[in-house]
Design a protein around this nucleic acid. Sequence first.
DNA 1: AACTGCACCAACCGCGTGGAT
DNA 2: GATCCACGCGGTTGGTGCAGT
Length: 300
Amino acid sequence: MGRAPCCDKASVKRGPWSPEEDELLRSYVRSHGAVSNWIALPQKAGLNRCGKSCRLRWLNYLRPDIKHGGYTEQEDMVICSLYNSIGSRWSIIASKLPGRTDNDVKNYWNTKLKKKAMAMHHQQQHYHHHGTAGRGHARAATIATPPPAPQSQCASYMQPSPASASSAVTTASGDAASFGAMYSPSHQAAPLGHYNVNAAAPLAEFSAMPTPAAANSWAINMAFEDMFLPELVGGGDFSQADLFGGFGASLLQAQDSRAQSSLQELSACYFPNAQAEMWAAAADHVNVKSPGAGLCPSLT
DNA sequence: AACTGCACCAACCGCGTGGAT
DNA sequence: GATCCACGCGGTTGGTGCAGT
């Protein structure tokens, strides 16, 4: 019981695109504007390609605003944050990163960022076991070690979440499964409510924000934590000091409070209810991946 | 130089969704 | 309401290049 193929795969060219094909597609889109029918495009554009292939090529490679490689620390942070919060919803994550495509973000995560995040997570766990008196006592713990270098903010975002646990259950790759399994699903009590997600706020606007001198990556980090972690940490018995391995809190205290609050406001503005939304989806579809389910239309 | 293993990434595949009929 | 069809998405695959032996 399969779906009928969108085209005759035997008669269309497959594999890597040639520069000539790229130019044909590019010029067709330039002259016709937004494509309303990708299936019909190949014939009109003189391409011997499947319509889906044309669409993918345009979206992932030929579109003029596409960026390739060169991910910034800020982008890493957004990807990690959102992955932890909503799982492998690459299109949503990519929508927060101007010039990035879901395919690109997905590849970047699978090949680089995931490893980076795992390494940082393990490093942080090691610190937790050896550097603090344990969960709930970290705030009182003596700060004996400097914070981890801010080259990656990922570890702090890698906290338990029903979304990542859910995706772990249904992911066939195994990587995400083992990754998700690192986290306890003990925070399933979902705060349900009315969701009003405004998801179309790209990261570019972060760049447009004046960055206070004191608002280094830790303060930004803090803003994202505020966004995604209150529910995750289960009612507040999991201190921010825990999240930062014990030293973050004191570091944050040294931050300019205005810088923190402005960044927190910014975060709340850009990702107001993403977490709550995903909690609702998780509550409705425990262990069942349901793309789109529980999401408001603006996210899908 | 030849071989092997790995990392990266473009492209493909199949399915869910939603609009049109 | 049922069916068809195109779009969009996430998972996976395969080709290529590089590093190590």
